[in-house]
């Protein structure tokens, strides 16, 4: 497996994400600076968590105009698969690759804790204990989008107990193409035995096996 992790100024989970794919799947990981373009067809392009461009204006707003993101759109059109975690999810919504937006948590607090998420998505069914770490993770979309996404089975994961005010408890979704995935929880932070939690590895294993 070959994966590309895009690093923006302010990304801080890029190495964690790369290491998780390396240790879990033996993936060959390339870190791509946001000024560069994606070349070739890696199995996955990963958008890591962090605070790209200092979260200025809105989380993820500025990152979408980078050369790496422009080439990501082409990569997706050619059949590529994309996973955005936390800030990566925010970037994907800002770029219009996923619908909706992530807004300030209902509590106004930055929440950093382990939560339980559940999935009914074919191939991902089950519950997972995975950490979240975000101040702006409350998922918002219009009623039409929510109806369509729920009806078409494009909700990836939901919180068992909603921590942030996300509409319909949504923690992650996928695109119409079912090749762009975005989620606020951090599966890459639950992939090593000595860190105490392994559910993230199980989740990622199932995700990469989706056809």
């Amino acid at each position: 497996m070959k994966v590309i992790v895009i690093t923006f100024p302010g990304s801080n989970c890029d190495r964690d994400l790369g290491k998780a794919f390396q240790s879990s799947f033996g993936a060959k990981v390339e870190y791509l600076w946001h000024k560069e373009r994606i070349s070739g067809m890696p199995d996955w392009v990963l958008l890591p968590g962090g605070f790209s461009y200092g979260d200025y204006l809105r989380c993820g707003a500025m990152a979408r105009f980078s050369p790496a993101m422009e080439s990501l759109v082409e990569y997706h059109e050619k059949g590529g698969r994309v996973l955005g975690i936390c800030n990566g999810f925010q970037i994907l919504t800002e770029a219009g690759l996923l619908p909706g937006a992530l807004i300030a948590n209902k509590t106004l607090k930055y929440i950093c804790k382990k939560v339980e998420i559940g999935s009914n998505y074919p191939g991902l069914e089950g519950n997972y204990k995975i950490p979240i770490a975000h101040g702006e993770g409350s998922y918002f979309a219009s009623d039409n989008v929510l109806e369509e996404w729920e009806g078409e089975g494009r909700i990836l994961v939901k919180y068992s107990q909603n921590p942030n005010g996300s509409l319909r408890d949504i923690a992650g979704i996928c695109s119409v193409s079912r090749r762009v995935f975005g989620m606020m929880p951090h599966p890459e932070r639950a992939t090593l035995e000595h860190l105490g939690e392994m559910d993230g590895k199980i989740f990622l294993q199932r995700l990469v096996q989706l056809s």
Partner: peptide
Amino acid sequence: KILVNSVI
């Protein structure tokens, strides 16, 4: 293009 996100 950038200053306003029309979704929200």
